[in-house]
Nucleic acid binder design. Sequence first.
RNA 1: GGAGGGCUGGCUGAGUGGUCGAAAGCACCGGUCUUGAAAACCGGCGAGGGUUUGCGCCCUCCCAGGGUUCGAAUCCCUGGCCCUCCA
Length: 429
Amino acid sequence: METGLTMLDPKLLRTELDAVAEKLATRGFELDKAAFSALEEKRKALQVKTEQLQAERNARSKNIGKAKAAGEDIQPLLDEVADLGGQLDAAKSELAGLQEDYQALLATLPNLPHESVPVGQDEDENVEIRRWGEPRSFEFEVKDHVDLGEISGLLDFETAAKLTGSRFNLMRGGIARLHRALAQFMLNTQVDEHGYQECNVPLIVNDDSLYGTGQLPKFAEDLFKLNVDHDYYLIPTAEVPLTNILRDQIAQAADLPIKLTALSACFRSEAGAYGKDTRGMIRQHQFEKVEMVQLVHPEQSYQALEEMTGHAEAILQKLELPYRVLSLCTGDMGFGAAKTYDLEVWIPSQQTYREISSVSNCEDFQARRMQARFRSPDAKKPELLHTLNGSGLAVGRCLVAVMENYQQEDGRIQVPEVLKPYMGGAEYV
RNA sequence: GGAGGGCUGGCUGAGUGGUCGAAAGCACCGGUCUUGAAAACCGGCGAGGGUUUGCGCCCUCCCAGGGUUCGAAUCCCUGGCCCUCCA
């Protein structure tokens, strides 16, 4: 009998409870081992009992069928099973209740961190892996992108607030084009140079998809839910539709790795971000992003993580934007990630690096919930894929970085060399 | 908006109350044959879960959720998706 979907491997949880609890502790998650064991013991006893009752019912029903076919009187047999149904129903509903509790507990467990992940409490303990590029020195006082946008009048937060509300933006003219140029450049690079298949995905997904990638059930408040009959949501990232393409599918080993990319709008409620990055377009309810997703053989996933990080870095290098790469510590990683690299780009007005991409290996965490599997010719059973996702890159934040890093004293923005073909050859915006 | 048809294993597709987890074909795996391969023939071949040291035994699953029944892929209800025709 099925125990339903879980996130961590339930077998691992049963057999290696101490080790699992220890690893979860590094993420600041305390697993109540006693409660879990007690629940598990009850589950086992009840499940065995329920299945026995079902086996008995099946056997007796079969006999009734045989007796009837032989023309015998089946009434005595019917009398015998009279109370079996009631017992079975009772056992079933008790078991269902228990499994609901069990699932509720499992659903709160984040993924186990990979052994190479630095142990730490929060973002202060993330480990810098490498830096690329030198922040430019300015001979004038740098302006931030909001001021730069105001000078040209082409980045307009006030009108956007009128149209919708806070955390939206209106781009026009050269800035809108620069934004589009960035998006096209990123997508072309991932498709033409890094071998991803371009996808155009639904921006609205159902709850099954969000459950598959792990946004639900825990993080519903971060999502925009549509007010319609179905459980439809705006996507917070194209990771959701892209990864769920393989939901309930069995891929052939020869087709791996599956590399997908999409340029899409993303929508986030940013609940819990009150007062954070309220100025400018760093944190918006709607933004565009080129997302990369890979579905790979488990043995290849850590190599794929390094490659994918390189695919994101390539964009910044071609744009000649200084950045650094961090390995997120156990306490700062996302719920489903086993290991994550963040790319942070230099923002001159803040004299600091800000996140522009996050690349994660989720191992089989999402694949287990999605039942995304592959079959090897030599293996009997289908195995779970490993899933990876990463931004390549966030377009809005990249626009901020380009505007600020390429600003001129008069407020114009120099067009990065690689974007010129997308800008009709213009030197400045 | 109206009327009908469909959804079954990796794929195609039979199955309308009992011995059906499910014919057949394709694909796949193993064997015979062959110098090797192909063809032919023979055999195997769904998924998830429980239990067991193991062999095994058992449970669940035929779009999803309810219902009828001793017993449901099959009958009834609700929903989803796909297709055809009409407006």
